[in-house]
Simulated scan of single mutants.
Amino acid sequence: MLDHRYVDRDGVGLHYVVAEPDTASADGPPGSADGPPGTVVLLHGFPHFWFTWHRMIPVLAAAGWRVIAPDLRGMGRSDAPADVRAYSPREVVDDVLAVCDAEGAERVVVVGFDFGAGVAYDTCHLEPGRVRAVIGMENPFMGTAGSVPPLEGSAMMAEKHFLHLNYFTQPGVAEADLAGCEREFLTRVFYALSAEYHYLDVWQHPPGSTYLEALPQAPPLPWRWFSVEEMDVYEAEYARTGFAGPLQWYRAMDVSWFARKEFERQTNPVPFYFLYSEHDPDLEGFHGRDPLSKLGRHHDDVRMVRAISSPAGHLMHLEATEDTHREILACLADIAAAVPA
């Protein structure tokens, strides 16, 4: 059973979901060698909110873990500050800590996907004592290499072809284009990010294109990996909130880039696990050449690197749900056995 809860952190309301562990799967009392193994915090990306984990949460709880799934600020039912500086690494890490503190979770396993992976790695850098282990999905590290901030670099790329990073950072443009088109946009972007389409083909569209013009037409739902009912939930949430809050994460990329410069020469000291899919566009287009060979430059203690065996694009936890759950559980089993609570 899921509990929806809220905590206020310095005037920003944060919504999160909690699932208690299935005590039948843990033989001993909490804190014993045979008791529940700990707490997992699931951090989503865009265009998502806590619901993206709705398939995974009961699986982890059944394995004996307590699960916390926040709505990151700007998304879902959490508040959306208007100042891009409110989305800096320090602010969003403090959000994670506030949720953990509200639940009495001192040291947690953090799972991060998309923007959530950046929050997970920032938490490892800024508050390593609060993170027992980190599991990254698709995004292996958040680089600060080079001398050009990301928004400037995106603007230069967008002079040659459509680039969603640049499109999203133009104030008011995407919000106006996508208003009333929430379901169409979500359906088309989910399809484009999947293994059934090569996402980087959107770059073939000329500068000045809208995202809807650049995205492919999607086949009608339901798909093999996504249902009409799930899209109904996504559509209802984004029709309610609009896209202004979520897009602050893109508009704050320079804020985050400059903040991460403070620890760009430091590796993540927390035990690191990584899951990826072979058709992920982020690995192909946004982390440089052969990013998997560079994990040691960013993480001190690389414990596992595992690929999803079934075909999947960026949304592997939706496209290849059973495989993703199996690999996540393998990582968590290693953490329970080898990483002190």
Rank of each mutant, 00 (worst) to 15 (best):
D101M: 08
R66T: 00
P47S: 11
A33S: 15
R73G: 11
L97W: 04
A69H: 06
V67P: 04
R85D: 10
A86D: 10
V109C: 04
F51W: 10
A24T: 06
G112L: 03
A63W: 03
F49L: 09
D114C: 07
E138T: 12
V110P: 00
G31H: 11
P140Y: 11
R77P: 02
H48V: 05
V134Y: 02
V40W: 09
A82H: 13
A117S: 13
R90M: 09
F46G: 04
G35R: 14
G118Y: 01
V111D: 02
P36T: 14
A26T: 15
D83W: 04
V67T: 06
H54C: 02
A62V: 07
A82C: 07
V41M: 12
L72D: 02
V119S: 00
A133G: 09
E91Y: 08
D95E: 14
D114T: 09
G35W: 15
G116H: 05
A26P: 08
Y121G: 08
R73E: 07
T52Y: 03
P81T: 02
F51E: 04
V109R: 00
R85W: 01
G104N: 09
A82F: 03
S78T: 12
R90N: 15
M137V: 15
C124H: 05
S78F: 05
A98Y: 02
G74V: 05
G118H: 01
G118V: 12
R77G: 06
S25Q: 01
P36G: 13
E106N: 03
L60P: 07
A120G: 09
V119H: 00
G118L: 08
A86H: 05
V134S: 05
R90P: 00
V41G: 04
D95R: 14
E127K: 15
P140M: 05
V93H: 01
I57V: 15
D34I: 02
L126Q: 14
Y87F: 15
V134D: 00
S78G: 07
D34N: 06
V92F: 10
F49G: 01
L72M: 13
F49V: 05
P37S: 10
C124A: 15
H48T: 02
V41F: 07
